[in-house]
């Protein structure tokens, strides 16, 4: 025990404990609670039934009241533990409730009902995961198509982004040609123009091209990311030109040099861009919100927002679909977190 404690409290560098160490760990623990807590709470809530969700104060785990089928009644009845006048306790099903009095029935003797005061009964609850929160919206509402649209947008857009940006980066890093500097300055310039500033005219252009309410309208405008071109160009600059000269000697065309030589050598940078692109596209909201106005073309983000904005918020579905929306990104992060954090720390973009 003592040795375990000594092991746990041992510090790198072998110095003793300082009060600020305790404060640091306290802060980090608070951080874990603050950062993960809300997400865990969402996950737990998403498994609660509609009745469980309106409970106040809420419970952490998804409990739901047990129900029994009683002979002679069509619907399952809620089960309560009833304190009888003689002080004994007995599980009974509630037939109906009138004011503060409930009419209860013993499931074993379905023909006898007794009246029980409201405060003499407590619901019998058990842990139950309401999977129907997940199944129903995917089946009955359009969530399946939202999900599909999001997947299409994310994969197609990422593919186009990678191809188009790597081509441009190759052209701008491995050739000397007239206009190269102006193109570079031009791309730096576009870095400074976020969609928030030009969303009105981009909408006009998209309308002219017939892209309103089409997934292409979501995919194309953001496909030529200046950050992507820069990231890839910086990387390609480190590839020695001799390799390209050697390939040319072997009668490779410029296109072959690009896709058989440069792209495979730039894979680390391309992978970083791919992950960024997946993140950007999956989470994209403002532009799809503008360009997609018909329900069947909504992406998951827009669909989720529209669904939660409807008059009667059906929280049990909203929470479950929120979990579905955050799941892919969470999985990507769980497997690639080291890769992502180092990628961001070294490029300074998100």
């Amino acid at each position: 025990m003592n040795r375990t404690l000594a092991f746990l409290t041992r510090r790198r560098g072998g110095r003793g404990w300082h009060p600020t160490d305790i404060l640091s760990y306290a802060y980090l623990m608070l951080g874990v609670l603050m950062m993960f807590g809300p997400v865990v709470w969402l996950l737990m809530s998403s498994f609660k039934t509609q009745a469980g969700l309106v409970e106040f104060p809420p419970s952490f785990l998804p409990y739901s009241q047990e129900q029994v089928m009683v002979e002679g009644y069509k619907d399952p009845l809620p089960l309560f533990e009833v304190t009888l006048p003689d002080g004994s306790k007995k599980p009974m099903a509630q037939v109906r409730r009138i004011g503060i009095v409930s009419q209860m029935v013993d499931p074993k003797q379905p023909d006898q009902t007794i009246r029980v005061k409201f405060e003499d009964r407590t619901p019998i609850r058990s842990l139950a995961f309401a999977w129907e929160n997940y199944v129903t919206p995917l089946k009955q509402f359009n969530f399946m198509s939202y999900l599909w649209n999001s997947i299409v947008v994310t994969t197609v857009a990422t593919f186009i982004t990678l191809v188009v940006n790597s081509m441009a980066a190759f052209g701008l890093s491995k050739y000397e040609f007239k206009g190269r500097t102006s193109i570079l300055i031009f791309i730096i310039g576009t870095l400074m123009i976020p969609i928030t500033v030009i969303m009105v005219p981009v909408y006009l252009v998209a309308t002219q091209l017939g892209m309103v309410n089409s997934l292409w309208g979501v995919i194309l405008p953001g496909a030529a990311t200046p950050t992507g071109v820069f990231l890839l160009r910086q990387y390609m600059l480190t590839i020695p030109d001799e390799l390209i000269d050697a390939a040319r000697m072997d009668n490779a065309s410029e296109w072959q040099i690009y896709w058989r030589l440069i792209v495979p050598l730039s894979l680390p940078a391309i992978a970083v861009l791919a992950i960024f692109s997946i993140m950007w596209r999956w989470n994209d909201f403002l532009w799809p919100l503008i360009i997609l106005t018909r329900n069947e073309v909504y992406t998951l983000q827009v669909g989720l927002n529209a669904f939660q904005g409807e008059l009667q918020v059906q929280w049990h579905f909203v929470l479950a679909m929120t979990v579905v929306t955050l799941l892919p990104i969470t999985l990507v992060f769980a497997f690639l977190q080291k890769f992502i954090t180092t990628g961001i720390a070294s490029t300074g973009m998100k």
């Binding site: 191809v163 188009v164 081509m167 441009a168 701008l172 050739y175 040609f177 190269r180 030529a224």
Partner: peptide, 16 residues
């Protein structure tokens, strides 16, 4: 050839 490589990107930039 570099113009060919840069073209798609510039087209998208230009349009959008």
């Amino acid at each position: 050839m570099p113009y060919v490589f840069v073209l798609p990107n510039l087209l998208i930039f230009g349009t959008f």
